[in-house]
Design a binder for these strands. Structure first.
Length: 469
RNA sequence: GGCCCCGUCGUCUAGCGGUUAGGACGCCACCCUUUCAAGGUGGAGAUCACGGGUUCGAAUCCCGUCGGGGUCACCA
């Protein structure tokens, strides 16, 4: 059975867009193969934990609609799914490696490690641990007066002169000399595992079949391979996704781009549009289609079409795609999304009446406000210092006033206005811009006739009048 | 710096030995038009990083160079 997972760390404000990106592929791949998609929380760094982060990450995942089969709040056969609740497991396996001679206790202090690192840098060597504690005999191990060992970590013992290689599903064989690998700490002195141990233990125990993660993990994968070998466990299939990039091609970062997935929702992007956009980063539809549903993505996803080049995150294209999604939305759907987005800022009937007017004009939900604010707020007066402006509005006012309350419909309003414009012998574009500005206070608006219908006769005439003074 | 990954229009990409190197975003022009959009038509934009091979033939295969990125923590 195909089992995939994402493993967010609650060390950021929210779900990182890069995590959402890998989540999407993990999710789709699992769905395609009728497998399970699992969310495991990797909260092993006590120092960097951020209050409320876990909750926000899970909420954002739900907001995007990537449903999971097992996770911290969805029990499965391999619970718990929060690493901080699995500490005894990691300790047990780490000790096992020590017994088997694949790992060892390290009593080096941070101070000493820092010195070693500096020294090696000076000699222009790689900054690697000098293996100081690797061959300590047990009677050499520092112990406190009560006989207990002083604080220590457990490091894995990297074998000498070995070529370690693994198959990456999209990149082929990747191999590295073991001599370039560090004796990595796998269990910290606070009893928590490092990523390397935790990920290997959990992926095995949770029977993860495919590890789909970011390219940044390639260089530590050989350590994971080694750990699997030490334990005698079968290895999962590895797929390393390209990294999303800033426009300067560096790894997507907070400084240069919005990275929190929820930010995109707050900006009025639709979850499915964001996901569709993400699907096209480093992957392409077999028929080169651009707009497709999640359902279709699941159907056609094919790991072999994953690219190895890190794509630049292009907000412009995201905006275009979001506009496509907005235009494709059933009107009732769009209406409820707008209502939800603006909370109680806009009355329901206004949203219902105006949504059809702006559906093909907005690229994000947020833009609704730019077009429709004038429906719920008197516009600022648009200063036009032309005497003809007032005269025109006055003539129009008189014409519109004659329309009966029940005939205050876009068509009638439009016809009436055209008659007035013709009588005045003024070009439509000029005439209607005057009216537009008087009614809405803006030069860019939804269609005028319909807008005036929505505003109502009384309000429309009032606004004309207000512009005349 | 060591190691690893990568290199097709500005951007996302198709391509998997023979194509006028195709599409999408963005940009420009025109059409439509009561503003703005949307829609339609057309256009500019890639010596396929560079240099060597292999081959009748290379964006596609091999080697080198250059360039970019990632990673080298008791962070993930």
């Amino acid at each position: 059975m195909v089992r995939t997972r994402i493993a967010p760390s609650p060390t950021g404000e929210d779900l990182h867009i890069g995590n959402l990106y890998t989540a999407l592929f993990n999710w789709a791949f699992a769905r395609k193969h009728k497998g399970h998609f699992i969310v495991r929380v990797e909260d092993t760094d006590q120092k960097r934990l951020i209050q409320g982060s876990e909750q926000r990450i899970m909420q954002t995942l739900k907001d995007f609609g990537l449903d999971y089969d097992e996770g911290i709040d969805k029990d499965g056969p391999f619970s718990p799914y929060r690493q901080s609740e699995r500490l005894d497991l990691y300790k047990k396996y780490a000790e096992q490696l020590v017994e088997q001679g694949h790992a060892y206790y390290c009593f080096c202090t941070p101070d000493r490690l820092e010195k070693v690192r500096k020294h090696m840098m000076e000699e222009k060597k790689m900054s690697m641990y000098d293996r100081h504690c690797r061959n300590l005999k047990s009677h050499d191990q520092p112990a406190a007066s009560d006989g207990k060992l002083t604080p220590h970590t457990i490091r894995m013992k990297i074998p000498d002169d070995r070529k370690i290689s693994f198959q990456d599903e999209v990149r082929g064989e990747i191999s590295v000399e073991s001599n370039t690998l560090d004796d990595q700490v796998i269990l910290k002195s606070d009893g928590y595992p490092t990523y390397h141990l935790a990920v290997v233990v959990d992926d095995h125990l949770m029977e993860i079949s495919h590890v789909i993660r970011g390219e940044e993990w390639i260089s530590s994968t050989p350590k994971h391979i080694l750990l699997h070998e030490f334990f005698g466990w079968e290895k999962p299939t590895y797929i390393h996704m390209p990294l999303l990039r800033n426009s300067d091609r560096s790894k997507l970062s907070k400084r240069k781009n919005p990275v929190w997935a929820s930010w995109y929702l707050q900006q009025g992007f639709l979850p499915d549009a964001v996901l569709n956009f993400l699907a096209l980063m480093g992957w392409s539809h077999p028929k080169e289609e651009e707009i497709f549903s999640l359902e279709e993505f699941v159907e056609v996803i094919d790991l072999s079409r994953i690219n190895t080049v890190g794509p630049i995150f292009d907000m412009r294209k995201l905006e275009w795609m979001n506009g496509e999604y907005i235009r494709q939305s059933p009107i009732s759907n769009l209406q409820s999304q707008i209502l939800k987005y603006f909370g109680d800022q806009y009355p329901k009937d206004i949203v219902e009446k105006t949504t059809p007017l702006i559906q093909e004009r907005i690229k994000t939900l947020k833009e609704y406000d730019e077009y429709c604010r004038f429906f719920i707020e008197k516009p600022n007066k648009y200063e036009i210092n032309l005497s003809e402006y007032r005269e025109i509005l006055k003539t129009l006012y008189d014409g519109l006033e004659k329309i009966g309350d029940n005939d205050w419909k876009a068509d009638n309003i439009g016809e009436n206005m055209q008659v007035v414009a013709k009588d005045l012998n003024i070009s439509f574009s000029k005439f209607f811009m005057y009216v537009r500005v008087a009614i809405t206070g803006k030069k860019v608006t939804p269609p005028l006739n319909e807008s005036m219908e929505v505003l109502g006769k009384k309000e429309s005439l009032q606004r004309l009048q207000a512009s005349m003074v």
